[in-house]
Amino acid sequence: MVRLPLSPEEIVRGKLLGQMLRRARGERPMLAVAMAAGISPETLRKIESGRVPTPSFSTVAMLSMVLGLSLDTVWQGIHEESSDSVPRVQGEHLRKAS
């Protein structure tokens, strides 16, 4: 299966998610947070840096729980800020499957 390229909005949301998680982690060690969430420290590093802009829902949910963030807060944070950062293109969410 071929994965479609990410839209500019998805890339921005991934960076915003990473920034939000990094701020929430604060002074806690990356290793401790990653292990508590059941992921590798390298995966957490990639998410926080925006190199993994679309982590799985379960990964986001576990990280949110470990960091004391509600999923509503995460959702609002990445969608409100991203809509200010990237102009929306009408019909952008409709992608053609190849």
Rank of each mutant, 00 (worst) to 15 (best):
A61C: 00
W75Q: 03
S70I: 01
A32W: 02
D84W: 03
L16T: 03
T59A: 02
G77W: 13
P5C: 08
K46Y: 09
L44E: 05
R45W: 12
L63K: 01
L17C: 08
V86R: 11
G14S: 04
G50P: 15
S49T: 13
L21T: 09
Q90F: 09
A34W: 05
S83R: 15
R28P: 04
T54Q: 12
P87K: 09
L94H: 11
L17Q: 05
T54E: 07
G50K: 07
M30V: 11
L17M: 10
D84S: 12
P5S: 01
R13Q: 14
P41W: 03
E48R: 00
R28V: 06
A32K: 01
L21E: 00
V12M: 02
I11Q: 09
L17W: 06
L67M: 03
L21I: 08
S83E: 15
W75M: 11
V33W: 01
D84M: 10
P41C: 05
G26L: 05
R3E: 14
R25W: 07
R22Y: 07
R45V: 15
P29H: 11
R88K: 13
A32M: 10
I78P: 02
V60H: 09
V2G: 14
W75S: 15
S82E: 06
L6G: 10
K96R: 13
A32R: 12
K15N: 15
S70N: 04
V86W: 04
G68Q: 15
F57L: 10
V66Q: 03
L71E: 06
W75G: 10
S58D: 09
L67G: 00
P5T: 05
R45P: 12
L4P: 03
G38S: 15
G91W: 07
M62V: 00
M1Y: 14
L71R: 00
E92C: 01
G14L: 12
M35P: 02
A61R: 02
R95V: 11
G26I: 03
L71P: 00
E92F: 05
S56L: 13
L67A: 02
V89D: 02
I47G: 15
E81D: 14
L21D: 08
Q76M: 08
V74T: 00
G38K: 07
G68V: 00
P29Q: 14
G14R: 06
S49C: 13
H93S: 12
V33T: 11
I78G: 13
P41M: 06
R51F: 14
W75A: 13
G14N: 04
H93E: 11
R23V: 03
H79W: 09
S64M: 02
S58C: 05
L67K: 01
S83H: 11
S40I: 10
E92V: 00
P41R: 08
E9W: 10
M20R: 05
G68P: 02
